[in-house]
């Protein structure tokens, strides 16, 4: 059986109802004025004030009703415009994402072939039993090193499209932050080892458990931080995962030369890179840290940086991602998806 619902009346509806009531009362007043006037005052002169009062009520009722219609019409058209804007923005995002997927797929195809062939050459050389000449190894390593950068660039563009969509809500689900960090270390370990750098991670407590957040967002933020860290570390990079009652923290630390204090305020600006300040050729898009910072803020957290520069012997850079520990989303009574 279909349910019959009662729609709540808004302020516009109440004003229209009030106007209509006054109008009806005014018309009734006009209609009964001759009878009541004569009966009440036993003379005809009593009719006139009652008629005036009825007319005034009719005018007032009409005014309130018209005004209510006018105001609600303006409000409705504004809502309609913003709904249209939102729908347009969503559609725009969808179309952009579709084009991006196509672009990603088609651009990824030749790159996969190149990387595949590079791996084949490496294996054939190893199978031949001869040591790979250092210059050849360097060339092969260079191809291998570019793949995580390509992967990151693609996902940065994807996240940027999402970030520019208005009213995109949070996507909370159960996440194991330790597993997210593990994946990122898997991805960068080889690249770091090729560059004679060491990358380690730890969590305290060791069994870190789950948190409610967006795994893609955490993975994206930390990947951007680790990508920077592996590039700038001198020999060592460390990722630490900790938590307290209110938040959990992911700290990405490296023993690189550090970032000059004058650059720190601009570090999370869109498109900013140190080369921009030095008027040099840019080596990166300057989007990674901007996206990481924006995502951290979107999920109610923060991303901060602390750095000590050379010649201090303790030179390093440390990024700390702080995200709140949320409760399980109310819509999910059982275990949520990951």
């Amino acid at each position: 059986m279909p349910r019959v619902g009662i729609r709540p009346v808004g302020p516009g509806g109440l004003a229209r109802l009030l106007g209509a009531l006054i109008l009806v009362f005014g018309v009734a007043n006009l209609a009964v004025a001759p009878v009541v006037g004569e009966a009440m005052f036993a003379r005809l002169w009593g009719i006139e004030p009652l008629t005036y009062m009825g007319a005034a009520l009719v005018i007032l009722g009409l005014a309130i009703t018209s005004l209510a219609y006018l105001v609600s019409d303006i409000v409705r058209s504004r809502h309609r415009a913003s709904d249209e804007d939102r729908r347009f923005a969503e559609r725009w995002t969808q179309v952009t994402q579709q084009y991006f997927d196509l672009f990603n797929h088609d651009l990824g195809r030749p790159l996969r072939r190149i990387v595949g062939k590079e791996r084949e050459i490496r294996e054939q050389l190893q199978a031949a039993g001869s040591d790979i000449h250092p210059s050849i190894r360097e060339l092969l390593d260079e191809i291998e090193e570019q793949t995580p950068s390509f992967r990151l660039m693609m996902s940065n563009i994807q996240v940027l499209i999402e970030l520019e969509t208005p009213n995109t809500g949070e996507h909370l689900h159960a996440v194991e932050p330790a597993e997210v960090v593990r994946r990122i270390v898997d991805r960068y370990s080889l690249v770091a080892a090729d560059a004679s750098k060491q990358i380690v991670w730890w969590s305290e407590p060791t069994e870190f458990g789950i948190v409610y957040c967006d795994s893609s967002a955490i993975e994206h933020i930390v990947t951007n931080l680790v990508d920077n860290t592996v590039r700038y570390a001198e020999s060592f990079a460390e990722i630490g995962l900790t938590r307290d009652e209110k938040s959990f923290y992911i700290r990405v630390w490296d023993d690189g030369p550090g970032i000059a204090a004058r650059y720190l305020p601009y570090l999370f600006d869109r498109g900013w890179t140190p080369e921009v300040a030095r008027h040099e050729e840019r080596t990166s898009s300057g989007l990674g840290l901007f996206i990481a910072h924006s995502l951290a803020k979107r999920y109610g957290g923060d991303l901060t940086v602390e750095s000590i520069t050379e010649p201090d012997s303790d030179h390093h850079t440390s990024f700390t991602l702080t995200l709140p520990l949320r409760r399980a989303p109310a819509w999910n009574a059982g275990e949520p998806v990951a």
Partner: peptide, 26 residues
């Protein structure tokens, strides 16, 4: 990553399902 993965994950999987996604360039 992205909408395809999110759709699959939200639609079909529980948080502890032994399913994971990895990039072809991995």
């Amino acid at each position: 990553q992205g909408p395809a993965r999110d759709t699959a994950v939200r639609g079909a999987l529980r948080w502890n399902a032994p399913v994971d996604f990895i990039d072809k360039l991995a």
